[in-house]
Amino acid sequence: MNRRLDIEVGVAYGSDPAQVVALLKRVIAATPDVAQHPEPTVLFLRLGASSLDFSVRACTHDFSNWANVRSDLMTRIYAALNEAGIEIPFPQQDLHLRSVSEQAAAMLATPRPTADES
């Protein structure tokens, strides 16, 4: 019995999609208990709000242990992205203030100490 493993991965804008796809395919091929038939697939899904989003679709023949196989694959993906210097971003938003009180403006204008100065 096969069990399909679906993993979505978001990487930072500026990453090379071809490099990400190749890296994910290498990780899939090197992960024990991930079946090579049916052939695993890596798809570039979308230009997300904070990331370039990819999908890893693979199978395992170890149906009763699929959660551990998926966990191992995810751990290996994270390590490979980290080693390659490919960032996994977190959502960010810019805040544009139309108006603030004088006190708030003064606080915003005051330089804050850096970690070295603390």
Rank of each mutant, 00 (worst) to 15 (best):
A115Q: 11
G85E: 08
Q103K: 11
P113R: 11
D33H: 14
V69E: 01
P111E: 08
E39I: 07
S64R: 12
R46A: 15
A104P: 00
L45A: 00
V56N: 01
D53A: 09
L45D: 06
T60E: 10
L47R: 10
V69L: 04
M74W: 03
L43H: 05
G85Q: 07
S101M: 02
Y78H: 10
A106E: 11
F44C: 05
R46C: 02
Q36R: 12
Y78L: 11
T41I: 10
E83T: 15
L97V: 11
F44I: 01
L97T: 02
A80Y: 01
D116V: 07
D53E: 13
D116L: 12
I86P: 11
G85V: 11
L52R: 12
D94S: 06
Y78R: 12
E87N: 07
G48N: 04
V100G: 07
P113N: 10
L45Q: 09
L97R: 03
S71Q: 10
V69P: 09
V56W: 05
R76D: 13
V69C: 03
E39A: 15
P91H: 06
A105E: 08
R46D: 10
G85N: 07
D33E: 15
A109Q: 12
D116S: 08
V69S: 06
S101F: 00
D72C: 11
D72A: 14
S50P: 01
N65I: 02
H37R: 12
H61G: 15
R70H: 08
D94A: 05
A104V: 14
L97S: 10
I77M: 06
V42H: 02
N65R: 15
P113F: 05
F44K: 04
V34E: 09
R76A: 15
T75L: 07
S99T: 12
A58Q: 04
L43C: 02
D72P: 01
L97D: 03
E39M: 06
C59S: 14
H96S: 11
F44G: 03
R57W: 02
A104T: 13
P38E: 01
C59W: 15
L81S: 05
E83D: 14
W66A: 12
L47M: 11
F44D: 08
N82T: 14
